[in-house]
Simulated scan of single mutants.
Amino acid sequence: MDNNPIDDIDRSILHQLQLDARQTDTEIGKKVDVTSTTVRNRLDKLEHNVIQGYHPEINYEQAGYPLHVLFVCTVNPSELKALTRDALDVQGVVSTRELLGGERNSHVEVVAGTVREVEEIRNDLADLGLAINSSEIISEAEVQPWDRFYPRAGPDAD
């Protein structure tokens, strides 16, 4: 993996992980048409620089946290990386995103059980230095595998 791009086998393995990361090496191997040992060896290499982690997809409402909120913020660009990282330390924050360009350059996703908790999170973020432009309640989110990892069909495929 040192400067070499990933190949079609790696892409197929990544696609299978995006579909269901709980699959065993054997299950992935059958779908990709390689041995489970090949899958394990490829995963060991991919986990060093391509795969950043395995995260469960949680239904927060079913877990007792019905408020799922996206704060759209403005942060001084020179402080963006540090502040978005610091925001992860605020209880209730589940993800942050740095955006390129524009005034609204940071998204902070939070989960809470009550409006009061959302207000406390908002205040904690403001205390860090994030200027909150808006807050949006997330009602549903859908995720799909990135299609460029889907196995390509033949040598002339895009």
Rank of each mutant, 00 (worst) to 15 (best):
F149G: 01
V69E: 07
V69S: 01
A21K: 07
D156C: 04
D7R: 13
I132T: 10
I121W: 03
E27Q: 15
E136V: 11
A126N: 09
D127G: 09
I9S: 08
I138A: 09
L128F: 04
Q18L: 13
A157P: 11
G113Q: 13
V72Q: 05
Q52K: 12
P5I: 07
N41Q: 15
L46T: 02
I51N: 02
P56D: 11
Q144C: 11
F149V: 09
I138D: 12
F149K: 03
Q52F: 07
P77G: 08
T24M: 09
I137Y: 07
D156Y: 06
L80Q: 10
N105K: 07
G129T: 08
E140H: 08
R148H: 06
E140R: 11
P151F: 02
G53K: 06
H48N: 12
L125V: 08
G113S: 15
Y65C: 05
P66F: 06
F149Q: 05
E120N: 13
S78A: 14
R22C: 09
D8L: 14
N4I: 09
Y65A: 06
E117F: 09
D89F: 04
L17F: 08
L128W: 04
V32E: 01
S78M: 10
I28N: 00
S135C: 03
G154A: 06
A82T: 15
R42H: 07
A63S: 14
A131H: 11
H68P: 00
D25I: 03
V118C: 11
E57G: 06
D33W: 03
N59T: 03
K81F: 10
L88F: 03
T24Q: 13
Y65R: 04
E140M: 13
D89P: 01
S106G: 07
L125Q: 03
V108S: 00
L99P: 00
D156Q: 12
N133T: 14
L70K: 10
R122G: 02
V110N: 03
A157Y: 13
Y60G: 07
T38K: 05
D10K: 05
S36I: 01
E136F: 06
M1W: 08
G113E: 14
K81P: 00
Q18G: 11
E103D: 12
R148P: 00
K45C: 01
V69M: 13
L99Q: 10
L67S: 10
A87F: 05
D124W: 02
K45T: 10
G29P: 02
N49D: 15
G129D: 06
Q144A: 13
T24K: 13
R97W: 10
F149R: 00
G92V: 02
S78G: 11
N123G: 09
E98Q: 14
